[in-house]
Design a binder for these strands. Structure first.
Length: 220
DNA sequence: ATCCCGAGGG
DNA sequence: CCCTCTGGAT
């Protein structure tokens, strides 16, 4: 199947079955989303949602977070991955927001990436979710699912290469939705360790399934 | 043992 | 390119 048709089928399927996808991270404003996304690195969204209410209550805006100690922030995030690094990142991020951006969340990749703890992936999530800009944040799910579905070539071995492959074929108005589609598909169907190919509707054009599918129905 | 919406540093 | 940070779920 041609690559263009893969993208067409991918978009058609999710447009029909999941027309309004959105992040599963809980947040009430761009600042809270930024905090949640920084925390979400190598951690499940469910865990972030468990600890974020107390964190947001104690640090409701960049000003209070900037004035906090990393040690205190640590006590709120000790159950997420890399709590020491992330506590420092959050305090540094809030300080940069206050000192360089007047406490507002910047709206460009370049400015966002000057914030401690914010790399290309996190910056693109903010731009996509907050500003609805056509940026493709490539995380572990997007990376894996894109390869399996044949939306990115196997030669795309870095997140940036996968990002470019996707951006070259997804119409701009679908990019923010496609980001969530790839994540949700990866999280609930196309799992890293044991993908649920038996309930997947996309096996017809999946390169991964093409390799692992049984040769005969019913064989053990 | 492997994975989860990675980023910073060497 | 590599390595480290690091807790909880499966």
């Amino acid at each position: 199947m041609q690559k263009k048709e893969r993208f067409t089928r991918f978009i058609e399927y999710f447009t029909q079955h999941y027309p309004e996808p959105k992040t599963e991270l809980n947040f009430g404003n761009p600042y809270e989303l930024l905090v949640a996304v920084i925390l979400s690195a190598q951690c499940t969204d469910k865990r972030i949602n468990q600890i974020s209410p107390a964190l947001f209550a104690r640090f409701p805006e960049p000003e209070s977070l900037a004035a906090a100690s990393a040690d205190e922030v640590f006590t709120y995030i000790r159950s997420v991955s890399y709590p020491n690094n992330k506590a420092k990142h959050l305090v540094g991020m809030a300080n940069t927001l206050m000192n360089q951006f007047g406490g507002e969340i910047p709206a460009t990749v370049e400015e966002l990436q000057t914030l401690p703890g914010v790399g290309r992936k996190t910056a693109h999530v903010i731009l996509s979710v907050v500003y609805n800009e056509p940026t493709m944040a490539v995380d572990t799910h997007v990376f894996r699912v894109s390869h399996r579905l044949g939306l990115a070539p196997l030669t795309a071995t870095t997140p940036l290469a996968v990002e470019k492959a996707l951006m070259a074929h997804i119409p701009k108005q679908y990019v923010p939705k496609a980001h969530h589609w790839l994540i949700l598909h990866g999280r609930y169907v196309c799992l890293a360790r044991s993908p649920k190919c038996d309930v997947c509707a996309l096996t017809e054009f999946c390169k991964y399934y093409e390799k692992i599918k049984p040769g005969f129905v019913g064989m053990s």
